[in-house]
Design a protein around this nucleic acid. Structure first.
Lengths: 153, 153
DNA sequence: GATATTTAGGATATTAACATCCGAATAGCA
DNA sequence: TGCTATTCGGATGTTAATATCCTAAATATC
């Protein structure tokens, strides 16, 4: 679904979100932990720094950390620089002139589904998908009795 | 959203579906009409012939035509050989082991949306998106009075 | 049967995504 | 002040998708 680069970015951001708050993590560690080539990831994360999604510290004890609270960080912001989700909505048939007024054949049918995808990336935040204690009992159901603790650290 | 090749395939199939029934269309004509490189399209369509989605006739008055009624042809069948839609469902984070039981962090959140996308491609047929007389007044509203006729041929 | 037309498909070129390498630039620490 | 750890970013290599070219195979028409 996502380009390789966007997937790397998302996984790395997720990894940072799981860290005890604020601790900067080196690229090597992230790459090691997630099986992502560190050199490549380095550039991807640098892009996210420029976009103020991450912050970086050089030198000893340096690394990357989130610059935004996970609750305020929609997946879209992490993924968009590497994979233009919104562009996928435009037209299934690649017609650049396609709009609600002058629509291509597939426009109506595709519109709803494409909106659902964009909605997902706009409204789901990093906090929403951060590894949680009890993935099953989140939100709708009573959050009182977590079935099993998943905290590994 | 779709790979270039899959998009070509879909547009070409749609073009064939718009033709008066049965008339075979040459690759050159399709490529010309749709702005797709004919040589390239040729191979794409040949693949669809092997998969029994299209039929081909060589020689004079030859060309390609649908081998299946548009009503019986889900977009998935046209697109899947060039772009594995179903694979996108599996895991947003690219985890090969991700399933309902042993799920990655994003699994639950992503599941619904990815299912909607797959559902679209499985249930929408070529007939559904074939260029229709009056695109605006389809389905919900009364289909009685087509505002304007679009039939060009 | 000869010929023109058209698909079939192998070989090859082009392009963009992905990945690696290495030398700066920066920051903490002795 | 120097040393080391770490990000930053340019240059380059690799791979897969996209595109082109050319010849062979098939088929309708004369």
């Amino acid at each position: 679904m996502l380009s390789q680069t966007a997937e790397y970015a998302l996984r790395a951001v997720l990894y940072l979100a799981e860290q005890p708050h604020g601790r900067p993590v080196r690229v090597d560690e992230i790459g090691d932990a997630l099986g992502i080539p560190a050199n490549y990831l380095s550039k991807t994360l640098a892009t996210l720094v420029r976009l103020r999604v991450l912050a970086s510290l050089r030198g000893p004890h340096g690394g990357f950390r989130l610059a935004v609270a996970p609750e305020d960080l929609p997946l879209m912001q992490v993924v968009a620089p590497f994979d233009d989700i919104a562009a996928r909505r435009h037209c299934l048939l690649g017609n650049p002139e396609c709009s609600d007024h002058d629509s291509c054949a597939a426009h109506h049918a595709w519109k709803r589904t494409s909106e659902q995808v964009e909605h997902f990336f706009r409204t789901t935040t990093v906090a929403d998908i951060r590894r949680a204690p009890a993935p099953a009992a989140r939100g709708r159901r009573a959050a009182a009795a977590p079935t099993r603790s998943r905290r590994t650290a």
